[in-house]
Design a protein around this nucleic acid. Structure first.
Lengths: 106, 106
DNA sequence: TTGACATGCAGCTAATTGGCTGCATAATAA
DNA sequence: TTATTATGCAGCCAATTAGCTGCATGTCAA
C-alpha cells in the first residue's frame, strides 16, 4: 500500500495531476488532459494509478468522471515514514556531518 | 532533482536501505547486502541511485565505502511539496467528503 | 609477495512502464 | 433518432529498470 503511493508519486506527470487537482477539485479527464501534451488514454492510465494508490477518488456525474484529490494517504506517508528522517533522529544529521569531515577534505 | 528523489524512493529495496542506514550510519556495502536476498552488485546499483539523488553520502575508508544517510533532501520534499497537501489546503479534505456524499450513496 | 577481501564496471535478460492507436460503450444535444 | 462527446478497454512498441554474471582493480593481512 505504501509502496503503491511511492510508485504513484514517482512520475512527474502524476505529480502534476495532483497539483492540478489541488488547485481545483472535481475536474474531468478531458479537463485534466489539457496542457499535458499527451493523449487522453495516457492521462487516464496515470489517473488510474493515482486512484489505485488511493490518492485520487472519483465520482461519476452523467458521462463525466469527476476527480478529487485525497490528501490523507500523503499525510499518512509524511507522518509515518518521512518524519522519522527529520524528527526524532535529527541528531543523525550532525553525526553525518562529523563523519564526513572526519579526515578527508579533498 | 525532486524527480530523482521521488524515483529513488519508489523502490522498496531502496527504502529498506534508507531504514537500515537510519538505524546505523556508516555501513559498508557488504554489510548492507546482508538480509536483502540480492547480489552485491544489485545492492550497489540501488545505493548508486540513492547517492545520485543526494539521499546517501559516502566516505572511503581504505577499501571500504561507508554509507551515510542524508536526511536533508527528504525534509525538503516534506516541507516544500507534501505539506501543501496536509497544511493550508486541509479544507480540501472536507470539500472532497462533501462532494462524494453529495448525491450517490450506492 | 601473495592470497583474500571490498568494490567497480560492463553487459545480458526479463519484467515493467509510459506513451501510442483503434475500437466499443454510454450519455448528452440537436 | 442521430451525431457528438466522455470515457473505457485491448493491444502495440520503445525505453527503462532490476536483477543477474563475469571480470578488473585496489587494499589489507599473512
Amino acid at each position: 500500500m505504501m509502496d503503491a503511493i511511492f510508485k504513484a508519486l514517482a512520475d512527474p506527470t502524476r505529480r502534476a495531476l495532483l497539483d492540478r487537482l489541488l488547485e481545483r477539485q472535481g475536474q474531468t479527464l478531458t479537463e485534466l488532459v489539457d496542457g499535458l501534451g499527451m493523449r487522453r488514454q495516457s492521462v487516464a492510465k496515470h489517473l488510474a494509478v493515482l486512484e489505485g494508490a488511493g490518492l485520487v477518488s472519483c465520482r461519476w456525474q452523467g458521462r463525466e468522471k469527476l476527480h478529487y484529490l485525497n490528501p490523507l494517504p500523503i499525510a499518512e506517508i509524511s507522518r509515518r515514514w518521512l518524519d522519522r528522517y527529520s524528527g526524532e533522529r535529527a541528531a543523525a544529521i550532525l553525526n553525518l556531518r562529523d563523519a564526513l569531515q572526519e579526515n578527508d577534505n579533498e
